[in-house]
Lab assay of single mutants.
Amino acid sequence: HNLTITQGKLFFHYNPKLCLSEIHKMEEVSGTKGRQERNDIALKTNGDQASCENELLKFSYIRTSFDKILLRWEPYWPPDFRDLLGFMLFYKEAPYQNVTEFDGQDACGSNSWTVVDIDPPLRSNDPKSQNHPGWLMRGLKPWTQYAIFVKTLVTFSDERRTYGAKSDIIYVQTDATNPSVPLDPISVSNSSSQIILKWKPPSDPNGNITHYLVFWERQAEDSELFELDYCLKGLKLPSRTWSPPFESEDSQKHNQSEYEDSAGECCSCPKTDSQILKELEESSFRKTFEDYLHNVVFVPRKTSSGTGAEDPRPSRKRRSLGDVGNVTVAVPTVAAFPNTSSTSVPTSPEEHRPFEKVVNKESLVISGLRHFTGYRIELQACNQDTPEERCSVAAYVSARTMPEAKADDIVGPVTHEIFENNVVHLMWQEPKEPNGLIVLYEVSYRRYGDEELHLCVSRKHFALERGCRLRGLSPGNYSVRIRATSLAGNGSWTEPTYFYVTDYLDVPSNIA
């Protein structure tokens, strides 16, 4: 807008934040220059609390790290170098490059900038070799853009010569660093050979998330399962459950009422301010606690030095998902009996873990797994792929695949051998790939016309006998059925096997 004052003059007093240069501009645009008398524009009460600059400061050096910015700028000295009290560095987070010096300023003089007072450097006698002032900004957020400017702080001049310097606002972004852990990993099994893994992005990506790394490792069953005799009275049979499938998407929606109208769909109840505040506090606490764990609990591995020492970490090797089922080394339970199943799973520490690289999504279907087997899954978020990966501390989750139908069934015939004193040795093959492992066998036998009897055969007993022995049988026709019990439950009964026990007292003698 054009402003013209045809008559009258300007009068400025007691404006401590208004620089004289701005008042002189007002004289020019209003056409009143030359009308004012000496005392109409006070030299001592206008701009006496402001830094009124008329020179431009330029930054000469900028260096960044993930949490620091090192700045240096060209030296500046007023005509009387004693008038320079120091520099004021202003900075704040700036997602967009549209910041002005006066953003967030209120009537009390406060604003949204963080201000650092910096002492002037030592003055050199040689004007050509003056030290460049600077400042190291610490405690910054990774991968965050900051708006920065600097200006001088000078003393009051009796001659009211307006001098000083100020830089333009520059924008500097800190470097990326390792992201925080992925949030809320959930693993479920939808079949006997697959596990579905879902997660949420890290709360602090500290860069642009480029991919996720998912490692999985087959877990050995508890050692007590191999040692305890679950045929003993009072000892509860062990059981394991597989990871249940995901709930429906509708039930997972946030901010939804727990109660549904019987007449149909209901609208979600909005969260109160107290609920939102509580969630923010919980989120802040979780982030602080995660940072504490990362800094205190997890110790970084030592990389190899120039002395030739090897990095103890196993090298990563990509495998196809079809090879995942046989990740671990199978060892027989008892070496003397080769027909026992290889369900003991000690994992070799030198073995390469299978892994998958996930790009542009937060889910993965891990296939080719062994049925009813526990897996430990390790999830890392990465925001750099080359020249070397920059990934987060791992988040861990466990899951067990679903049982395989008929995996616990005894394959092959049940054979028998009759000894003296009416002892019958029953023999059968253990299931080759049971659900988890076989903890015991149930032997059901009966003599024709009598009630059915049951015998429990422990895992250890089966390994020693290759089956079991029935003792003290009365003469007669017998039928026997056997079924295995694994961590997933009972298998199917075998087809009945028949044998006849004679009275050993009636056996004919070869003595003449």
Rank of each mutant, 00 (worst) to 15 (best):
G207E: 00
N208L: 06
I209Q: 15
W216R: 10
R218L: 10
Q219V: 15
S223E: 12
E224S: 14
F226G: 08
L235N: 05
L237A: 08
P238L: 04
S243N: 11
F246P: 11
E247Y: 10
D250W: 14
H254P: 08
N255H: 15
Q256D: 11
A263R: 14
G264R: 13
E265I: 12
C266A: 15
C267V: 03
S268C: 05
T272Q: 06
D273K: 11
K278H: 02
K287F: 02
E290A: 02
Y292T: 02
V297F: 09
F298S: 02
R301F: 11
S304C: 10
S305F: 13
T307K: 04
S315H: 13
S315W: 14
R316T: 08
K317V: 05
L321G: 07
D323Q: 15
V324N: 12
V324R: 15
N326A: 09
V327C: 03
V329L: 07
V331M: 14
P332I: 09
V334W: 11
V334Q: 12
N339G: 07
T340W: 14
S341C: 08
E350T: 14
R353Q: 11
F355T: 07
V359T: 07
S363F: 04
S363N: 09
V365A: 10
S367K: 10
R370S: 13
T373C: 04
T373G: 06
I377V: 10
N383D: 01
D385Y: 09
E388C: 13
R390Y: 02
R390C: 07
A394Y: 06
Y396D: 01
V397Y: 14
T401H: 00
E404V: 14
A407T: 12
D409K: 11
V414L: 10
N422K: 15
H425A: 06
H425Y: 10
E430H: 05
P431Q: 03
P434F: 06
N435A: 05
V439S: 04
L440M: 02
L440T: 03
R446H: 07
G449D: 07
D450Y: 13
E452P: 05
H454A: 06
H454V: 14
V457M: 06
H461L: 11
F462G: 05
A463D: 08
R466Q: 05
G467Q: 05
G467A: 08
P475Y: 10
N477Q: 11
R481E: 15
S486V: 01
W493S: 06
T497A: 08
Y500G: 12
V501W: 03
D503F: 11
Y504Q: 12
L505E: 09
D506A: 13
S509N: 15
